[in-house]
Amino acid sequence: MTFSIVATDGVDVGVAVASKFIAVGAIVPQAKAGIGAVATQCYANPRLGSLILRLLESGINASDALTRALGEDQGRDERQLGVVSIKGDAAAYTGSKCPEYAGHIVGSGYTVQGNILVGPEVLENMAKAFETKRGELVDKLLEALSAGDAAGGDRRGSQSAAIIVLRPGGGYLGLTDTYVDLRVDDHPDPVSELRRLFSIWELTLLSREDPNDVVLKSDVALTVQKVLKVLGFYNGDVHGNWDKATEEAFRAWAGFENFENKVRDDDKIWGSVYRYLINEARRRGLLVND
């Protein structure tokens, strides 16, 4: 009923998963920063994931940890698991009673697995997407999940999706290990919705902008003033000069949207922030010449 990918790049560990099942993110993915990650699915037994993570933390490799955990589970014929350690070793298991199509692929630093799939092409496309996509682990996981979804995914349809990526000290204000943690619990197109949510998470919480993706404040001052005036953040004249009042209005809007960490102190705006402002104007039906 589920397809997932578990992976590491040696720093981050993570799981991405989708299913025709309510809130799959509450059941399948488990991970610990600096240790590894596990997906437990089919007739999932989350206790196996917790046990495997403890075994990985003790120094046991992924394959042995998986074998030991399954040895304690009488329902193992109905289980499906994928395991990756921070060292990059990976292992997977598909029980003999997992509903067809069921299977897995183990690669370098990752494993993909699924059951009740339209066919093996779901896993094959996921593996290929993960191996060829450039970027951080989160980008590769999302690409793999999208590839599996595009290939047909769960043959019963779609309902939920989730992604979790852990990085030591990589979370909010450096106070947690949660680099990314998003769930779509019930949606007609959960993988696309997950990607939409990630675009907001990335803009709000991650600091990984392309240094060339900027716009000059002087070039967009008129548009920004028009939009911020309609949105209620700018009360001055719309004259097209980026003055103190415009800067203050822009910062007030950025704070309202939780983008404080994306406000620059020079003559530029991050392209991602500017596009969000324009898209917000369009969403509200404002006519903006940008």
Score class of each variant (00 low, 15 high):
Lys262Asp: 07
Lys133Met: 12
Gly153Thr: 10
Val263Cys: 11
Glu209Cys: 12
Leu141Arg: 00
Leu277Met: 08
Ser158Met: 10
Gly240Cys: 11
Ile278Gly: 08
Leu51Ser: 05
Pro46Ser: 04
Asp77Ile: 09
Asp265Trp: 04
Tyr276Ile: 07
Val184His: 02
Glu257Asn: 15
Gly236Pro: 06
Ala33Ser: 12
Phe259Gln: 09
Glu121Phe: 15
Tyr274Leu: 10
Leu166Thr: 09
Gly236Arg: 04
Ile269Met: 05
Ala144Cys: 12
Asn61Pro: 08
Asp267Tyr: 13
Leu117Cys: 05
Ala90Gly: 05
Ser58Leu: 12
Gln113Cys: 10
Gly75Val: 15
Tyr179His: 06
Asp210Ala: 15
Ala65Trp: 00
Gln80Trp: 00
Val38Gly: 02
Leu141Glu: 03
Val288Phe: 07
Arg251Lys: 14
Glu280Ile: 03
Tyr172Leu: 12
Glu136Ile: 04
Cys98Trp: 01
Ile269Lys: 01
Glu202Met: 06
Ala129Leu: 10
Asp186Met: 04
Arg54Asp: 01
Val13Gln: 01
Ala62Trp: 00
Lys244Tyr: 14
Arg283Ile: 09
Gly152Met: 11
Val17Ala: 11
Asn115Asp: 14
Pro190Val: 08
Ala144Met: 04
Ser85Ala: 13
Asp189Asn: 15
Glu100Cys: 15
Ala92Gly: 09
Ile278Asp: 10
Arg76Asn: 12
Leu117Glu: 01
Arg208Phe: 06
Leu142Phe: 02
Lys229Phe: 07
Ile86Pro: 02
Gly236His: 06
Arg76Tyr: 11
Tyr276His: 12
Arg68Ser: 02
Gly255Asn: 14
Ala252Leu: 10
Gly109Phe: 00
Arg79Lys: 10
Thr94Cys: 02
Ile116Ala: 04
Lys128Gln: 13
Thr204Gly: 07
Pro188Asn: 06
Ile86Val: 11
Ala150Phe: 09
Val215Glu: 14
Glu209Ser: 13
Ala129Val: 06
Trp270Gln: 08
Ala44Leu: 03
Glu260Trp: 11
Asp77Thr: 10
Gly271Tyr: 06
Lys97Met: 12
Thr246Asn: 07
Ser96Gln: 13
Glu57Phe: 00
Arg183Val: 04
Tyr172Thr: 06
Val220Asp: 03
Gly71Cys: 01
Gly49Leu: 03
Gly148Ala: 05
Arg208His: 09
Arg134Tyr: 11
Arg196Ala: 08
Tyr43Glu: 13
Gly171Asn: 04
Ile60Lys: 01
Pro46Arg: 02
Arg282Trp: 13
Ala91Gln: 00
Val112Asp: 01
Tyr172Gly: 08
Asp12Ser: 13
Cys98Ile: 07
Ala18Trp: 05
Val83Glu: 01
Trp253Asn: 05
Arg134Gln: 13
Ala91His: 00
Val288His: 10
Ala62Ile: 04
Gly10Glu: 04
Glu260Gln: 09
Asn235Phe: 10
Leu203Val: 14
Tyr93Ala: 08
